[in-house]
Design a protein around this nucleic acid. Sequence first.
DNA 1: GCCCAGGAGTGCA
DNA 2: TGCACTCATGGG
Length: 275
Amino acid sequence: MKFDYDAQYFNPEQVLDCGQIFRFTPFKEGYLVISADKACYVYTEGNKTIVESDDSDYFYNYFDLARDYKEIVERAISHNVPLLTKSAQTFKGLRLLNQNKEEMIYSFIISQNNNIPRIKGIINRICAGLGERREFLGEEYYTFPSTSALSQAGVAFFKNAGCGYRDVFLDETSKRILTEGISHLENLNSAQLKKELLTYKGIGPKVADCIALFGFGKRDSFPVDTWIEKIYKEDFMGELTDRNKICDYFCNLFKEDAGYVQQYLFYGKRTLDKL
DNA sequence: GCCCAGGAGTGCA
DNA sequence: TGCACTCATGGG
């Protein structure tokens, strides 16, 4: 099955390269993207971006295609912040994904004090070790492991996958989720969800915001990492040093668009100079 | 060899 | 509550 969408507001490279997803590889004319236990092939042809998969409904929602990003881009530009304006104009095709909640929890626990290439490698090794081997369009891939499989793997497995000191966080959190599930997290507002997420081992303010934003669709979340800290100082001339206060500052400034703005800023700061 | 990476847990005042 | 210290690991 396949479907297509206006490529101006759906650019695979921008969507995949902006740091919200760790499981994709270049494939033919585009990318093979893995989410939870599913795979799709996404590529641009002319003025259309095309998604091929075995589950169109899943990936239509995954790529957030019911939402109008033209309005989001225009609102971002209207704030008249140079970095934000330039980034939103350059990356009109960026979209926030609606990813699997548990995959986001484990993936962003791994992300703390870590760099993106290494995060990708760790997650790939964990999937290869505990996930199920599948095939899509002749390509092999591994599903993201179930909480059950993760909870039984043991600390040594995570250590061996290169997780470093985060091994115990993954072990403890997967065991907790195995017994509690995550259904009690589903219908909370952003503040309530963040508060709950902060009670898990390995989840602090920044990781909680990423999980809320990418996994639970809380678009008013604004993760503050080292890059955002730098942007706050250099592009907003901010004086605060407490990350929680910097987070409040941006959330109050951008309200319900905070998450989109955060991605434009983060991706723009990392890549605009190199274009 | 040093610094940094999509930070967070712990101990101590 | 605030703050310094520490935590693996690989790339630049």
